[in-house]
Design a protein around this nucleic acid. Structure first.
Lengths: 256, 256
DNA sequence: ACCTCCGTTGCGTATGGTGCAACGAGCATT
DNA sequence: AATGCTCGTTGCACCATACGCAACGGAGGT
């Protein structure tokens, strides 16, 4: 494990929170500032960081370039984009695309809704597993053993009155999602927002990603959210088709 | 300058182009694969890279998180978003936001148009200085000496029939931009697209960013593009207002 | 004009990163 | 089913490299 690289990554993470001075960075990594200076110089030469004035560093252009290049290469993202956009324009609500990788659920695309509500999400941000509709969709079709494993090792911080707080409760919820073909987040993450999510499938029928729609509770109640589910499913189906999915037969029996 | 860090950054850049195996990466950095393996492990432990299967690495979630977090913190971007969105929905064309930093012009936001034309741009990507409307806007108001300096050190690859290929031609163009208050890219970058761009100003009246609108030539000719300029300027003005700009008096005289 | 605060530099040291070579798992080929 | 290949992985010994220290110098404030 490379020490200097690890420190540099810490620096980048720190810089993501906003511009920093050399001293501040040295404190946060807890090494001598000359060391930090060298790392910063290397990062700067590759334009991963950038100094705005002599005393402040911030993240540089290479980082944005890299991240967005990689995002664009995600086939799901590109293929799903038109359907997401359609859903967003049709309903006016915020639409997300998330995928499961490396044990985490990550937002890989986002279309802001017309209601200017403050939303916790951001492209690249990790979504909590226990209280988001996208996570439920993405985990629901994993093998039963793996699901149980994940549920056991998860945290269940209670974020609202409705948050599911136990592994068993969560596994039961995943079963409901599996049966319904879509997932709900009944204000389990934030008090004022509820969501619905549906799977985007690839060639083999496996879940590549999850589309979700987030609606302020002030704008519509549970019934109103349910009314949007057909549109959500239509967008998800269209996105799946773009990803090569062929809806030959139902695949719900295949679970062992 | 840190050797291992530098190598790691090369690895990240390489991975941005798509998934790679250990050997491929070792070749591209030209070091022993065991060394690459260690670097990758460090990157993996911080989730900057992620292995999809035992043999392939790709960029990980931290990178997306970092980049987009930093992007969101850009005040210009957040402040300009509503105006850009408005312009995008009104015209149906692709809208960009770009800023000048560290000697480069970088796209920091993008709203896709309804015409599905292939566009060279991407958030985080660097825009060529000599043939894009955004670059012209961002460079136009720099001090004359700095402008000349930049023009001298620039490259002028001829990309289309209309590309400006000389420093003097470019400086003359910047003067036109300064006088007009907006910039055009008359298919100087790509044969089939032309653009117009206008400045977004901050409290002091200085140019924080540039908004641009890109239109396929198949859809509208030069006159048609000009017709869009008032809308473009309106969006830019609105974005500027959000950034704290107060249009007290014209500041065109202030140039020395 | 002084002082302080911080970024910067040179240098000696030993830590941490490197390449080597051998191992082993997974896959394809016969 | 057995063999050979490819490619990721591990342990080890060496020395290059990244580290901390301490002294320097410039900018900004009082």
């Amino acid at each position: 494990m490379s020490q200097s690289l690890d420190r540099a990554l810490t620096l980048l993470t720190e810089l993501a929170a906003g511009p920093r001075t050399l001293d501040e960075l040295a404190d946060s990594v807890d090494v001598h500032k000359s060391t930090v200076l060298r790392l910063l110089r290397t990062l700067e030469s590759r334009q991963f960081v950038h100094r705005t004035d002599p005393r402040h560093y911030r993240l540089g252009t290479s980082l944005f370039d890299l991240a967005n290049r990689a995002l664009e290469d995600r086939d799901v993202r590109r293929s799903a984009a038109p359907a997401l956009r359609w859903l967003n324009e049709l309903t006016g609500h915020t639409v997300h695309l998330a995928s499961y990788e490396g044990g985490e659920v990550v937002y890989i695309d986002k279309y802001d809704g017309r209601h200017s509500v403050r939303m916790y999400s951001r492209i690249g941000r990790r979504a909590p597993l226990h209280c988001t509709a996208v996570a439920k969709v993405l985990l629901a079709e994993l093998p039963t053993g793996q699901r149980a494993e994940i549920a056991r090792s998860m945290d269940f911080p209670k974020l609202t009155a409705n948050t599911i707080t136990t592994p068993t409760g969560y596994l039961a919820e995943l079963d409901r999602v599996l049966a319904a073909g879509y997932a709900m987040d009944n204000a389990e993450h934030e008090d004022f927002i509820h969501c619905a999510a549906a799977p985007v499938r690839g060639v083999g029928g496996d879940v590549l990603a999850a589309v979700s729609i987030s609606v302020p509770r002030m704008v519509s109640d549970a019934a109103g959210l349910l009314d949007l589910v057909p549109d959500l499913l239509r967008a998800a189906t269209e996105a799946s088709a773009e990803c090569g999915w062929v809806p030959d037969n139902n695949h719900r029996e295949k679970d062992g």
